[in-house]
Design a protein around this nucleic acid. Structure first.
Lengths: 238, 238
DNA sequence: CAGTGGTCTAGACCACCGC
DNA sequence: CGGTGGTCTAGACCACTGC
């Protein structure tokens, strides 16, 4: 590990060990650099990381302060994870059933979203995930045929779609733009998630996934039972 | 503006003007630094900013590349904004009515969330926002009396709560942890947002707001008509 | 004013990649 | 191996804050 990352951890431990209480000022950057025997710039890199993590507050001309640690949240939406991971984080054990895997013609909406020709071939995968015998998610995944080729015929798809795309197609999903929608009660996929209760609340995530170069690679509809999952976002003011 | 921020803008303009196409490699940091007559570290600071903005992809040992610009999204949940701002961004003109402003005893849930004594005094503000004559949001805001004092009696509250807290109480809201909930149809606040249609979809944001020192300062229930607002998040994989 | 953080430099060496 | 980005230094000067 590089020097400034190491110092970041040192400082982190010191904060956890209450060397300085919440609200207290740290020694000046000059002093801290001397203490760790590094240059001031290196020390500053470490502080910048802790500032981004929300553990320090730096005030120009005044000093650097320890601030109250925020609660840890298991699953935050700003951090992209596969649905499988979200299920694990919710403390559930998953079994799944593929509802369909195959090629279909691209609709207008998919074409526009994925930035491909209308009517070109796409591969569509539909899955239901169960936990304790109850359906908890319904996912529809759409990928351009040009990108995935015959991977779904060639290899057996099971487990994480992210891993599958990485291994079989060298596609690394890096980000996604996600719209959160409260779907109408009569939506056909919502129907599939209904249990015996009168009202089964469902949230729909319409997700456009990008690779590292920001190319559109995967469009998904993920229906999640909102009585089973919690959706958190940490929001910051800019 | 400092030097590296200036260079960031220069580079940004050059990218927009297609000096380099999407996917192309920029000159090396050494070359760019020479071109702008700055040190390499300064040049690197500018590049780091563009990388965080998702405009450049830096590959160790290979080079720095222009990547596809992502679509601009008007309102992203990771960026904390007042409901009033969200309404403006949705292209609506707002009128509002205060349903109540006053002091009440703190419930157990509020106490736990705001990290104050159960039964201590809190100030509660309820507002309905209308656009084109229809109710589009219902907000319940809870603030510890210790923090806001008699600000709501002393001064006239109208417009943005964030601005009011800033001006009257020197409270700067910096972040929030928000849980997104699909509320039950019979929720009393959801009832207030129903219009003539059969089904009025509503999303509830349970938001705990922090100041710059991460102190809990405001807890809100914000009910938003999801046929009027769009909820987007950009998710990144870590 | 003194003390703090913010920016910048010129140069060095290391780590990674493709050939 | 040569070319790229990643880290680090010692020192300088600037910008902001509180007294």
């Amino acid at each position: 590990m590089s020097g400034y990352q190491h110092i970041k951890q040192e400082l982190e431990t010191m904060i956890e060990n209450k060397i300085w209480n919440v609200g207290e000022k740290l020694p000046s950057e000059y002093e801290l650099a001397k203490h760790f025997s590094v240059s001031r710039e290196t020390l500053r890199s470490a502080i910048k990381l802790l500032e981004q993590d929300g553990k320090l507050l730096v005030k120009h001309g005044i000093g650097t302060f320890v601030i109250k640690p925020l609660p840890g949240i298991p699953s935050r939406l700003e951090f992209l994870q596969s649905i499988g991971t979200m299920i694990k984080l919710a403390g559930l054990t998953e079994t799944d059933s593929k509802e369909m895997i195959g090629e279909v013609d691209c609709t207008e909406e998919w074409a526009k979203t994925l930035n491909i020709e209308e009517g070109s071939q796409v591969v569509k995968v539909e899955r239901i995930r169960y936990a304790d015998g109850e359906a908890v998610t319904y996912s529809v995944n759409i990928m351009p045929k040009d990108l995935v080729g015959d991977a779904f015929e060639r290899a057996d798809f099971s487990g994480s779609l992210f891993n599958f795309l990485e291994k079989e197609c060298s596609i690394h999903i890096a980000k996604a733009d996600t719209e959160l929608v409260v779907p109408p009660n009569k939506d056909k996929y919502v129907e599939r998630l209904k249990n015996h209760q009168e009202e089964t609340p469902v949230l729909l995530m319409k997700q456009l996934h990008y690779d590292q170069q920001n190319r559109e690679v995967l469009y998904s509809y993920d229906y999640l039972r909102s009585d089973v999952f919690q959706f958190w976002v940490r929001r910051e003011r800019k």
